[in-house]
């Protein structure tokens, strides 16, 4: 095996190890967080502070009966939960978590695939996520599931536009699709102490991106495809046991990778000012990953906070927000950023 292949495997392994931890941790954070917001206790029986609740949940999921509705489309019903993990487990490859380091006498970039099409690849893979939802909703042969699937498909394409336009505005001054370049661009400070993060000059784009990210991950206030009070559980109404758990994992891991993307695009990624990335390669990698995970965690906590604070949108309100507010905002932001870039300000 060549050194490059080994290095790629090692980096992929690191990401996988981290991403697979996201779901249990986030379940705990979500439940305890919601309890805190609603002045309850939350799960506190399994382990200290209920920390092992996720473990108990996992055991429960595995022991539950796996039900497939009699009239369901068996093949698609089985395929959908597997596809839910595809975008979550592929998009991280273009997210850098450190500078190039020298390990074992070789130059190693701290990103799994430093493709020149970087962000575009990520957006393309992420856009495949909607198929799992639609498949699940259609194959269940249940009107609530189908309604959830229809809503999911309309919502995803509507908000993808705004999301992509916001991302394009970030890429304009950088002049590259590569996320490593985006991080490099954000190094340095304004006025000597404010980090030169895109979130500051491009706060409109940042706002659009975050709102669209909520819609893309089907989180409240935009969780219309699964709206409990109207559609039972939307597209995954007819799923139980591990199949349901896979949807759950896909949702949380999708949130995690989107948070990493948001941190990379708008908050400087793995780079933190005043932190010297020197020392042995593993220390640099650990620092970079630590900073990236820290920033992504901020976004994840924000996701949870918003979920337990805002009421759900109505579907027509959702569409109106997407097409009549976010999209024009994103276009205006893009035009402004383009003008500033040409003018040499950014």
């Amino acid at each position: 095996m060549s050194f490059e292949l080994l290095a790629t495997l090692a980096k992929t392994g690191l990401w996988m190890a981290l991403l697979l931890q996201v779901t249990p941790i986030m379940v705990w954070v979500e439940r305890r967080g919601s309890a805190m917001i609603q002045d309850r206790l939350g799960p506190n029986r399994v382990g200290p502070l209920g920390l092992f609740q996720a473990l108990a949940d996992a055991v429960k999921f595995m022991c539950k009966e796996d039900i497939t509705p009699a009239e369901a489309d068996k093949f698609l019903h089985r395929l959908a939960p597997l596809l839910a993990l595809v975008p979550a487990l592929t998009t991280f490859v273009v997210i850098p978590f450190g500078p190039d380091v020298t390990a074992f006498g070789r130059q190693v970039p701290l990103v799994v695939a430093g493709a020149e099409t970087g962000v575009l690849l990520l957006l393309a893979l992420a856009s495949l996520g909607v198929y799992s939802l639609v498949m699940a909703g259609y194959s269940s042969n249940n009107k609530y599931s189908l309604l959830g699937a229809i809503r999911a498909s309309a919502q995803m394409i509507s908000y993808e536009l705004a999301l992509t336009l916001a991302v394009v505005a970030v890429l304009l001054p950088v002049g590259s699709f590569e996320l490593s370049e985006v991080v490099r661009y954000q190094q340095g400070q304004f006025l000597g102490w404010i980090p030169k993060w895109n979130a500051l000059p491009q706060f409109v784009g940042f706002l659009v991106f975050v709102v669209a990210a909520f819609a893309e991950t089907n989180r409240l206030p935009f969780d219309l495809p699964e709206a409990e009070s109207e559609l039972v559980a939307g597209y995954h109404t007819e799923y139980s046991s591990m199949k349901f758990a896979l949807f759950f994992m896909g949702e949380y891991m999708g949130m995690a990778t989107l948070s990493c993307l948001a941190a990379t695009l708008y908050l400087g990624g793995w780079h933190l000012p005043f932190l010297s990335y020197s020392g042995p390669w593993w220390w640099v990698a650990a620092q970079g990953m630590g900073v990236l995970v820290g920033k992504a965690t901020l976004f994840l906590l924000f996701f949870v906070w918003v979920r337990w604070t805002f009421p759900r949108f109505r579907f027509d309100q959702l569409m109106r927000l997407g097409w009549k507010v976010l999209l024009p905002l994103a276009v205006l932001n893009l035009i402004a950023v383009a003008a500033l870039t040409v003018g040499g300000v950014l």
């Binding site: 099409t117 393309a124 893979l125 856009s127 495949l128 639609v134 229809i150 498909s153 394409i157 993808e160």
Partner: peptide, 24 residues
């Protein structure tokens, strides 16, 4: 590779989702 990314993004990510939407 750029065309490949655009292909997946535009065709599978948008056009075919639109088809599914209309079919359903």
């Amino acid at each position: 590779p750029f065309l490949a990314a655009v292909q997946v993004l535009v065709y599978t990510g948008a056009i075919l989702v639109l088809f599914l939407f209309v079919i359903m």
